[in-house]
């Protein structure tokens, strides 16, 4: 990679990041108003609060201000103090605390699940393609499709019943600072369905490459098969896989609510859904911003990885 190319990619990255700022700003505004359209507020409860009490609470959190003022205060607090506001539901923690606690957890098991899904999925797909139309292929296809077709939330109860109740091997839930025993089930539960689709994409991509002209040429030159695959076939095979992996990484982190619900891992997925249901506005917004920023960054990384894998693409 020449210095010119590095420079080009650098300026591309900076341009993309600059565009990301208004994107996230608009995201905040859109979510803010959507949230307020939803019926009920953070302090709607079974026991309707007397007016005076409600007024005190709203005054404390600034909810008595006009909406635009609330939005403005919210934004300035983020920019000036990097403060994402208080939680209305969890009175002794604020949004920064909640994210600082939950995000590393989600990131840990999400990243491990992502790695597991990618490695196993790609390996399975490559093996199936190389041994096309053999039992390995059929096995890999069946496994991949089955993993993808099962709704991933049924993995939770199945794993806990098997490993905790019947085999007594693993603790049924919790995080305990991320010890491996507590990680096994969340990672398996989260990775299976993505593993299935990665295997399928890898397989069809690999098959296509193996039938292409340049591989035929390489074969004609008498190169050993493993070298052909390793040196020539693998890189182009992974192109469509990579464009799929980007969104998967985001999904793995944001769609992990069922892992938190079943395994009590304490990640952000559950906080996210419950904050929407309890109208904990600041928590909902904070996590949305985090996820939005993550999406933007992951998309950028995917594009950069794409450029690295496919030298034909230039920015």
């Amino acid at each position: 990679m020449g210095p010119l190319l590095v420079l080009a990619m650098l300026s591309y990255t900076i341009r993309r990041l600059l565009v990301a700022i208004p994107t996230i700003l608009l995201l905040i505004v859109a979510c803010f108003f959507l949230m307020h359209v939803a019926p009920g507020g953070p302090f709607t409860s079974e026991r309707p609060l007397p007016e005076a009490v409600l007024a005190n609470i709203e005054a404390r959190y600034g909810l008595d201000q006009p909406l635009w003022k609330q939005l403005w205060d919210y934004l300035t607090n983020i920019v000036v103090h990097f403060d994402f506001g208080p939680s209305f539901k969890f009175k002794d923690r604020d949004v920064n605390d909640i994210i600082a606690h939950g995000f590393p957890i989600s990131l840990t098991y999400g990243f491990l699940a992502f790695l597991a899904a990618s490695i196993v999925g790609i390996a399975l797909g490559v093996a199936a393609a190389i041994r096309h139309n053999t039992w390995i292929d059929y096995f890999a296809v069946c496994l991949g499709v089955a993993a993808q077709a099962l709704p991933n939330f049924i993995m939770g109860p199945i794993l806990i019943l098997t490993f905790t109740l019947w085999l007594g091997l693993l603790p049924g839930g919790g995080w305990n600072g991320g010890q491996w025993q507590y990680l096994v089930m969340p990672v398996i539960a989260l990775s299976t369905s993505y593993m299935g689709s990665i295997a399928r994409i890898t397989r069809s991509s690999m098959l296509e490459i193996l039938h292409s002209n340049f591989i035929r040429t390489a074969r004609a030159k008498g190169l050993p098969e493993y070298l052909i695959i390793w040196r020539h076939a693998l890189k182009p095979t992974l192109l469509p896989v990579i464009s799929y992996l980007g969104p998967v990484f985001v999904y793995v982190l944001t769609g992990s609510v069922f892992v938190d619900i079943y395994f009590s891992t304490g990640g952000l997925g559950q906080s996210y859904v419950s904050s929407a249901l309890s109208r904990d506005y600041a928590v909902l917004l904070g996590v949305t911003i985090l996820y939005g920023a993550l999406t933007v960054i992951v998309n950028l990384l995917t594009d950069l990885a794409y450029a690295w894998f496919d030298p034909k693409i230039r920015y």
Binding site: I160, L161, L165, G172, G173, G174, Y262, S264
Partner: peptide
């Protein structure tokens, strides 16, 4: 106090 959102999972863990 352990937070377990799902009552069926809680029961499984009780039995374990």
């Amino acid at each position: 106090a352990l937070v377990i959102n799902d009552e069926n999972v809680a029961l499984t863990r009780f039995l374990a």
